[in-house]
Simulated assay, not measured.
Amino acid sequence: MAKHMDLPNLYETGIDDLVISAEKVAHVQLTNPLEHAMLILIKSGYSSIPVLDTQYRLKGLISQPLILDSILGIERIEFEKLSEYVVEDVMNTEIPCINEKDGFFKGLKLSIDHPFLCVVDDEFIFKGILTRRALLKFVNRYLHESSVR
């Protein structure tokens, strides 16, 4: 019975150990041309990436579909718009987000509808991302360890 004490209490578990730090996350800035954002998205292989201001505050998300939608004309794809528009013109400002102080269960609940959550501090400074994959790996390990004991 004492071995169950080794397992973390999920209600008290934070997300800090599961967060991929901002330094390791591909991102763009508000004033970057769409062409730059498209290159970052393609090279990184991510479906969407965070948009930050010059103080590293989270401002939105940009994705390939948002970019492509913005350059679709009536009769053709208007590739010249990739250098005319900036990220701020087309980004999504509805951001799946969690505070770095929030707990595991809030992250788990929010991740149901999103492949990743942006992690911010109280000033909305971008701290990294919390992926659904990291949360599920943690749950899997927790359940496996609790069933073994």
Rank of each mutant, 00 (worst) to 15 (best):
E94F: 11
E78A: 10
K109E: 09
N99C: 04
F79N: 03
N92H: 02
F79G: 00
G103W: 06
L72N: 15
K109R: 14
I98G: 05
L66Y: 04
V86N: 07
K106C: 00
I67H: 08
L110N: 11
D102V: 01
I62L: 05
F79A: 10
E88Q: 15
T93W: 09
K106Y: 01
P65F: 07
P65G: 01
Y85M: 14
F79R: 08
P96T: 03
F79H: 04
I95V: 15
N99P: 00
D102M: 03
F104A: 09
L82A: 08
Y85H: 10
F104S: 04
S63Q: 01
I74E: 15
G107E: 02
P65V: 00
E100Q: 12
P96C: 11
K106N: 03
E80A: 13
K106I: 04
G103D: 03
S70F: 02
V90G: 10
E94A: 05
K101A: 06
S70C: 07
P96Q: 12
E100Y: 06
E94M: 04
N99W: 01
I62T: 13
S70E: 06
I98W: 01
L82E: 05
R76A: 09
I67Y: 07
G73Q: 10
K101M: 07
V90N: 07
Q64C: 02
I77A: 03
L66Q: 10
E94G: 00
L110V: 01
K81W: 05
I77R: 07
I67M: 08
E94T: 13
L72R: 15
E78D: 15
S63G: 01
D89L: 13
C97G: 02
E75P: 00
S70I: 03
I77S: 02
P65E: 00
E94I: 14
D89W: 10
L72D: 11
L82M: 06
E75M: 05
M91D: 05
L66A: 14
S83V: 07
G103L: 10
F104N: 01
S83H: 04
K106R: 05
E75C: 00
K109T: 13
G107K: 08
N99Q: 13
S63C: 04
V86P: 00
E94W: 09
E88D: 12
L110M: 13
V86F: 02
V86C: 10
I98Q: 07
E78Q: 15
I77E: 08
E100G: 02
I74K: 15
R76Y: 04
K101E: 11
I98F: 10
F79K: 08
L82D: 04
I71R: 03
K109Y: 09
L108F: 14
E80W: 08
C97K: 15
I74Y: 10
G73W: 15
E80N: 07
V87S: 09
S70D: 10
N92V: 12
I67P: 02
I98S: 03
D102W: 07
P96R: 14
I95T: 14
V86R: 13
L72Y: 10
